[in-house]
Computed example of a mutant assay.
Amino acid sequence: MKNLSTTAECLRDLVAFHAERINGYENMRNKFSPEETCLESLFTGFIRQSKMMKKELYDIGTSMGIKEEMLLPQQEGEYGLAWSVVKAVFSDRMPSYSLDKCKSGENALLIAYHSVEGTDGLNAEVRALVNKQKREVIAARDWIAHFERLLHKQAMKEPLAAVS
Score class of each variant (00 low, 15 high):
A8M: 05
E9L: 09
D13M: 14
L14Q: 07
V15S: 02
H18L: 02
A19Q: 11
R21F: 07
I22V: 15
N23A: 15
N27Q: 13
N27V: 04
M28C: 15
R29H: 07
N30W: 00
S33N: 14
P34G: 06
E35R: 08
E35W: 02
E35N: 06
E36I: 00
T37A: 06
C38T: 06
C38K: 06
L39Y: 01
E40H: 02
T44Q: 08
F46A: 15
F46V: 13
R48S: 12
Q49T: 11
S50C: 11
K54W: 00
Y58T: 02
D59A: 10
G61L: 03
S63E: 14
S63V: 00
G65Y: 04
I66Y: 04
E68G: 01
E68T: 12
E68S: 13
E69H: 10
L71T: 07
L72H: 09
Q74V: 01
Q74N: 03
Q75F: 04
Q75V: 09
E76N: 14
S84Q: 13
F90E: 05
M94I: 03
P95Y: 07
S98T: 13
L99K: 01
K101M: 14
S104P: 00
G105M: 02
E106C: 06
L110M: 15
A112V: 05
D120F: 12
L122V: 11
E125G: 00
R127G: 00
A128M: 11
V130M: 06
I138S: 10
I138N: 07
A139S: 14
A139M: 12
D142P: 00
D142R: 12
I144M: 08
I144G: 04
H146M: 04
E148R: 09
R149E: 04
L150Y: 08
H152A: 10
A155L: 07
K157G: 00
E158H: 09
P159L: 10
A161I: 08
A162M: 06
